[in-house]
Computed example of a mutant assay.
Amino acid sequence: MPHAQLTLTIPDSVWMSEVSRSYPNTRFRVLAATANTATGVARIEILGDDPEAVCDAFERYDSVTDLTVFESGPEACRIQIETTVPLLLNSLQEAGVPLEMPFEVRNGKMTLEATVPQGTLSDLRQTLDRFGIQYTVERIQQELDSEAPLLTERQQWLLDEAIERGYYDTPRRTTLVDLADELDIAKSTCSEILHRAEERVLKANRDGERDISSRITAASD
């Protein structure tokens, strides 16, 4: 199954593209998102020098119908935003590509990584072309194993960092807050990614033990 990495250029007419280009040094982490044909809702973490000004810029767009600020600070804030133009989400959903959260938008671009069947990858290209979304294929590689990797690259990176920094030591050498600060990510984001990684590892370990147990039972018979 091919693993693809694409850089998507969000169309200039989309509010996220225009705002992120106006604040090129600001990072927009999309923590959760959902959309249908008419509306989209996203929870976004804004990391930059003036997040309040970014929120004001968002609210000036007619296509942004609601904006709620959950947390706010001088260099970061977390918001939930509703829009009538969920173009990017609709294009990915229509192509059948699962969108791994969180993903980041910066200066009008986002990086998409996905391990999908060849047919789905072809559908994605056609859908992006139809929606007028420009993209650059950074790499495509064939996974040697027929199964997708247990962890995403981001989950594997954060898990490795947590292990190296002593988060899983007994007693712990670092806390979740310190780990998130050292890696420059929000505490909630750090917790969410680690939880997903731990869930996959634990379930894979359980399934592996069941598989070994069944083979031993079969051999004894």
Rank of each mutant, 00 (worst) to 15 (best):
M1Y: 05
H3V: 07
H3K: 11
Q5L: 03
L8R: 01
T9L: 10
I10Q: 03
I10T: 04
V14D: 05
V14F: 05
V14G: 00
M16K: 02
S20Q: 02
S22Q: 11
Y23A: 13
P24D: 04
N25H: 14
N25M: 10
T26D: 08
R27A: 15
R29Y: 08
L31F: 02
A33D: 10
A35C: 15
T37N: 11
T37E: 14
A42T: 00
R43N: 03
I44Q: 04
E45I: 06
E45S: 12
G48K: 05
D49E: 14
D56R: 15
E59S: 10
S63P: 03
S63W: 10
D66G: 04
L67V: 05
L67R: 02
T68P: 02
T68C: 06
V69R: 13
S72Y: 06
S72P: 03
P74Y: 11
A76F: 07
I81Y: 02
E82M: 14
E82Y: 14
E82A: 15
T83P: 05
T84N: 07
L89R: 03
N90D: 12
L92A: 02
L92H: 04
Q93A: 09
G96M: 12
P98Y: 12
P98S: 10
L99Q: 04
E100T: 12
E100S: 09
M101T: 08
P102H: 02
P102D: 01
E104A: 01
E104W: 01
V105D: 00
R106E: 15
N107C: 02
N107P: 00
G108R: 01
K109D: 01
K109T: 07
M110G: 00
E113N: 02
P117T: 03
P117Y: 02
R125K: 09
R125H: 04
Q126D: 12
T127K: 05
R130V: 04
R130Q: 10
F131E: 08
Y135Q: 01
Q142G: 07
L144Q: 06
A148V: 04
P149N: 00
P149I: 00
P149V: 00
P149F: 00
L150N: 00
T152I: 01
E153W: 03
Q156H: 10
Q156A: 13
W157R: 01
I163S: 10
I163C: 08
E164K: 15
R165W: 11
Y168A: 11
P171C: 12
P171W: 15
P171M: 15
T174I: 15
T174Y: 15
T175K: 09
L176K: 09
A180H: 15
E182C: 13
D184I: 09
I185A: 07
A186S: 14
T189L: 09
S191E: 15
L194A: 02
L194I: 06
R196S: 08
A197D: 05
A197F: 07
A197I: 04
R200V: 06
R200M: 09
V201C: 10
L202R: 15
L202Y: 11
L202P: 02
G208D: 05
D211N: 12
I212P: 03
S213K: 08
T217S: 09
T217M: 07
A219S: 08
A219V: 04
